[in-house]
Amino acid sequence: MTQRTIAVETQDHLCRITLDRPERLNSFTADMHAELAAALERAEADDDVRAVLLTGAGRGFCAGQDLSERRAAPDGEAVDLGASIDRHYAPLIARLTTMPKPVVCAVNGVAAGAGVSIALACDIVVAARSARFVLSFARLGLVPDSGGTWILPRLVGQARALALALTGDPVTAEDAQRWGLIWQTVDDADLPGVAGALAARLATGPTLGHAATKRLIRDTWSWSLPEALVLERDAMRALGRSADYREGVSAFIDKRAPRYTGR
């Protein structure tokens, strides 16, 4: 029987997914990709789930690809790394970035290689103070994949993106926050509580509004300002007909906490 590689818990509209290969720093195998893809697909399809929290078990978030599955053959035959991108990593990044629900990532330790890209594909990243972000591709003669070359310069600028990618030097959680790579750094002991509370708050928020906000902000790179104004208008028109908008206005007028349903 194949050993489970992730843990999933769904409660109070929040799906918590934990990468669970701590003995290998939660590095990805084909089995882990399949399990995570299935879990995210279920979370996206389940109307009761309104936010996702992704983290890792043990002392690291994710060390990227498990290289024991990517060794070159003894006879020197090349490994097709592009096939792995097409089959596993590209669909994972696409699902995280387009899921119509907020995704929070709690980086509990080292994030290396594709583990960095996976964390940055989530909507809000909270990291433990001891966390490190390492673009280890250069040490293997590779390029930052899983969207790494796209997102890095957009978050930290070309100069830092090139230095991080070419040297593979680790970035502390504090520097990652200061440079705009992540949202927040907290003490290690506080990470589960802070990230959990943030994800829980999003899980009880106006889900349709969150989804539209996520889509608009993520797609804005390819738009002009006039195009953005039109798309914002269309989103506001649709959201103005939602039950969550009516509830939000009523709660504001009544001076009470809103009770959103995600509809």
Rank of each mutant, 00 (worst) to 15 (best):
P153C: 08
D145I: 00
T2I: 13
K255I: 09
I124S: 12
V116I: 06
L96C: 10
A243F: 10
I118G: 07
G240D: 07
T18W: 03
V107Q: 01
A112E: 07
C122D: 06
S136Q: 10
E35Y: 03
A63G: 12
I85D: 11
F28W: 15
G209P: 03
V104F: 00
V156A: 06
T98H: 13
L67D: 15
W223Y: 13
H210S: 06
T167W: 05
Y245G: 04
L166N: 06
P22N: 05
T29H: 08
L216N: 05
L53Q: 02
P226A: 12
L239T: 12
E227R: 12
G113I: 08
G113C: 14
T261F: 03
V194G: 04
V104K: 00
S27F: 08
V49L: 04
W179D: 08
D66L: 12
G56M: 04
D66I: 05
I17M: 05
A173W: 00
L239R: 09
D190E: 07
A257V: 13
T5M: 07
R87L: 13
L202W: 02
A119Y: 04
D254N: 15
E174F: 09
D20H: 14
L92I: 10
T213P: 07
T204H: 15
L208M: 12
E9P: 10
G148R: 00
T55M: 04
L53R: 01
L54M: 03
D12A: 11
G209C: 10
V125Q: 06
L166P: 00
S68C: 14
G147H: 01
P226I: 08
R256D: 06
T29Y: 10
P226L: 11
T167V: 06
L198K: 00
S130K: 05
L152D: 03
D123E: 05
A94K: 09
E9A: 15
C105D: 01
K255F: 14
D190Y: 01
E77T: 15
L92T: 05
R154V: 05
A106H: 02
Q3P: 09
C62F: 09
L53A: 10
F61N: 02
L67H: 15
P144W: 01
M1K: 12
L54K: 01
V186N: 05
A45Y: 04
P100D: 10
G147F: 00
F133I: 07
P22R: 09
D219T: 10
A106T: 02
T29D: 10
L120Q: 05
L198W: 01
D46Q: 08
A38T: 10
T149C: 11
A200K: 02
I6H: 02
L216S: 11
A106V: 08
T220Y: 06
L140T: 11
R237S: 09
H210Y: 11
A114D: 05
S84W: 15
P153W: 01
Y260I: 04
D46H: 05
